[in-house]
Amino acid sequence: MMPTTFTRVASRRRALVRLATLWLAPFVARVAHAEPHRRPDHAFAQKDVAPTLRALFGRDDIPHSDLIRIGVAKLAENGAVVPVKVDVDLPHVDEIALIGTRNPVPLIGRFSFGPRTRPFVATRVKLAETSEIVAVVRDGETLLLARAAVEVTVGGCG
């Protein structure tokens, strides 16, 4: 009696496991195929603009482009809250990175866009002192950059 029940339970368990494996397979495959997200920790660890660019994009000789428009006030009274928007005259871009040239950590953020998302982002950043905001745009292998000078009255080293 006992062994029979055991065998039956065991085989039922095996069947369940097999069923679960089949059922989960498509999900596992999908996860495996998706590119894993990796935070650019190395870029956030840099203290200057050029190494930040190299850490993010592998190079720092990125050409300037008028296709990128940085919307930011020339004079920021409070460096702790500086509204910034970046708009790119291209149908689509893969990502926009924002850099504060004299911030203790220059890399402010990197924004990656889905296929339907317009090449635009607006946010509020901190600027430690009078400096520049650099916006770097990547679309595939193409890299473009723009700069905007901001005079900061009270530093936002917050």
Partner: peptide, 18 residues
Amino acid sequence: VLDADWGGGIAKNPYLSF
């Protein structure tokens, strides 16, 4: 539609528009 990596350079009480 948007995947962002942020550092401490984003202002307190973040605002984000896209």
